[in-house]
Write a protein that binds this DNA or RNA. Structure first.
Lengths: 144, 144
DNA sequence: ACAAAAATTAGAATAATTCTTGATCGCAGG
DNA sequence: CCTGCGATCAAGAATTATTCTAATTTTTGT
C-alpha cells in the first residue's frame, strides 16, 4: 500500500516547528531532521553525529541515536539496514527500495514502475497483513 | 510440481561428500549443512551452535561462524538479516523473500507469482546489473 | 516561579561477530 | 611409516554498533 503523500514535511531551512507528526521538536531533533533531509545520502548514526557537530558542537552520540529513534518511530524518517552494516537513515517516506552500488559504495532509492504493487506479484496466503516492506538490491549501476 | 534444483545438493542423510560447490567438506561443515537443510526454520548462528552439540559436543561457536561463512561464500546457504537482529541462515537457494510473522515470530519463505521477475517491475536505469536481491516483509499471516 | 516530566549527556554495559593464537588434522612426498 | 605443510579448529580476547544508566539540563504545565 502506498502511503498518502505526506502532510508536506516542514521546510528544513525555515523555522523549527513545535512538532512534526506528533513528535515535539527539540534543537537536536530538528538539526538531525534538517541534516537528513538536506543530504539524502543515507548516513549512519555516526556520520550524522560527525556532520552535525558544525551546528551542535556539544551533542552526544547517544542523543543522535535517541533523535534518530524518535524520528523513526514517528514515521518521519526511515531506518535502513544493509546486511549487518551500521543502520542508515533515509528521509524518503514513499514506498521504495534501496540499491547498493558495489562500484561506488553509494546507495540509491529505487521505486516500482507506475501501477505496480508488490503485494500483487508475491505469492502470499489470502488474508496476509503486510505492515512493512524492505527491498534491497546489490549490483552495479551503468557507468554514467 | 517442484522446480528443478540447479545443482542437486548432496543428500544430508547420506555420506559426507569430499566437497560441495568447491568447498572442501569437514565434519563440522557437513554437520552444519545437514542441520540447516534438515530444519528449515532459519536458525541463528547461536541456535545452530546449540542444536549441533548433540552430534559435535566439542564444536566451538567460532567454528560455527566459520562454517556458516564458508557455506555462505560458496553459495551453499544464504545469510538472511532482519533489521539488526542476529543473522539467520537458510538453505533455500531459489530466489525468494522472507516474511516475518509478528504474531508467532516465525519466518517464512515467500516467492513471486509464476512469471514475475522483480527486475521487470522496478524502475532501474538501463544497464543496471543486479547481483543480489533481498526482500523482507513484516506483518501477520492469517490465523490458520 | 515551581514542581513534574521529558530530553540530553557521558560513559558504562551489552551482544553479535570477528580476530588472534596456538593446537590439530589430513594428506603428499620421501 | 614418518615428516612437513597448509587448512581447519578451539578458546578466549577484541571489536563495534547500539542500548542502558544515572545524573544534569531543559521544557512544560499550573
Amino acid at each position: 500500500m502506498v502511503a498518502p503523500i505526506q502532510n508536506s514535511k516542514p521546510d528544513p531551512s525555515g523555522e523549527m516547528p513545535a512538532e512534526i507528526s506528533g513528535l515535539r521538536m527539540t534543537k537536536q531533533r530538528w538539526e538531525v531532521y534538517r541534516l537528513l533531509v538536506g543530504q539524502r545520502d543515507h548516513p549512519t548514526a555516526n556520520e550524522v553525529f560527525i556532520r552535525i557537530k558544525d551546528r551542535l558542537p556539544n551533542i552526544s552520540l547517544a542523543t543522535v541515536y535517541n533523535c534518530l529513534e524518535a524520528l523513526t518511530q514517528h514515521g518521519i524518517v526511515r531506518q535502513v539496514n544493509f546486511d549487518r552494516e551500521p543502520s542508515r537513515f533515509c528521509p524518503n517516506l514513499e514506498e521504495h527500495g534501496h540499491f547498493h552500488d558495489k562500484k561506488s559504495g553509494t546507495i540509491h532509492d529505487i521505486v516500482f514502475k507506475p501501477g505496480v504493487n508488490l503485494a500483487d506479484v508475491l505469492d502470499l496466503p489470502a488474508g496476509t497483513v503486510i505492515t512493512d516492506i524492505e527491498i534491497t538490491l546489490r549490483g552495479e549501476l551503468p557507468t554514467s
